[in-house]
């Protein structure tokens, strides 16, 4: 087990290098360091000398991947790519191109992201599972068909409509919650109600439908038939057998998204003005702050790989038959 985890972690290194390479390529095909300097120095009256010093200070004056003027190993190491990537692997994100410490910003901004993502996940899970069980109980009746059509209809509505509609109705017309904004600490709760409700409702269609499929698949298996044949009530069958066994795919499905909860939601956060990591990323793209973009891409990849690893481990935990090799 330990050996397996270590091997998987080692395997992550080439992936992260690849990710970094792609990020660099994409970003620098789009932007030259000159562009970045101009963006940060402002619009009016910028001199070429100022651009040069800006680049020098942040190490963007070197060549991107290959330094032809240097000797030996330095042809590869004295470059922007090497300089900027190596430190990422030690999770030292350095400071943003605007001069702020990225690590500190991330540690501050992940809480609002989590404050939305975790309730949405938990409440959503509870509601979706209960609804799905309910539908499965009535499977192959008109309730089932109507519910499925309703679910499909719900997932056919763009998330933008949920957000726009929710904000309009609950905040503007009914004055129930603030339209947008955030606050530190516990005072944040009233700002979270609306995004969480919208997040949950937006996920009901897809989630419930998926769980329904899982349950139906499970309910068709032989052991369930046996249990039913033994005269167990349908309710017991569903809870004791179907739900318990379907929990394995549900849990592993949840585990894979857990780490990514940190990354926040781009759309929700920018609509509701929540200072999480999602809006952090969008701002960085708009401001062309490459240091932040790079850090966020790296973080996202690490978390993704972590999610995959956790899924594998959780498989062994819930099902002893699976052996990791």
């Amino acid at each position: 087990m330990t050996a397996y985890i270590i091997r998987r972690l080692l395997y992550a290194i080439p992936i992260l290098i690849g990710v970094n390479l792609i990020t660099f390529l994409l970003f620098f095909v789009v932007n030259s360091p000159d562009d970045m300097a101009r963006m940060h120095l402002g619009m009016k009256r910028v001199t070429p000398e100022a651009i040069e010093t800006w680049k020098r200070e942040r190490g963007y004056h070197r060549p991107l991947f290959l330094n032809r003027d240097a000797n030996g190993a330095e042809t590869l190491t004295d470059t922007i790519f090497f300089d900027k990537s190596v430190r990422l692997f030690a999770f030292d994100f350095g400071s943003s191109d605007a001069g702020r410490d990225i690590g500190y910003d991330i540690s501050q901004r992940m809480w609002p992201s989590l404050a939305i993502a975790v309730p949405v996940l938990v409440v959503g899970l509870l509601i979706n599972i209960s609804l799905a069980l309910f539908i499965v109980f009535f499977r192959a009746t008109y309730i089932d068909i109507a519910a499925v059509v309703l679910l499909v209809a719900m997932m056919s509505i763009s998330s933008l409509f949920y957000i726009i509609g929710g904000q309009y109705v609950l905040s503007k017309v009914f004055h129930l919650v603030p339209i947008s904004g955030y606050d530190t600490g516990l005072a944040a709760w009233k700002f979270l109600i609306l995004p969480v409700i919208i997040g949950v409702i937006g996920g009901v269609g897809t989630g419930t439908r998926w769980y329904r499929t899982l349950f139906i698949e499970e309910a068709g298996k032989d052991y369930v038939r046996t249990a039913r044949a033994k005269g167990l009530s349908e309710r017991l069958v569903l809870f004791r057998h179907v739900l318990r066994n379907a929990l394995i795919p549900i849990l592993t499905g949840v585990v894979v998204v857990l780490p990514l909860l940190f990354m926040g939601s781009l759309i929700t956060e920018s609509f509701f003005g929540i200072p999480g990591l999602g809006s952090y990323t969008i701002d960085a793209i708009n401001n062309q702050d490459f240091a932040i973009v790079r850090a966020m891409v790296f973080l996202g990849s690490v978390l993704y790989i972590l999610g995959l690893l956790m899924t594998d481990i959780s498989y062994t935990l819930v099902d002893p038959r699976v052996r990791l090799s």
């Binding site: 904000q167 905040s171 004055h175 603030p178 339209i179 947008s180 904004g181 920018s270 003005g273």
Partner: peptide, 16 residues
Amino acid sequence: FSLEKEDIPYWNKFLQ
């Protein structure tokens, strides 16, 4: 001074 990126929430909050 509160951060308000979008016009609509801003305007609605003003009216409120």
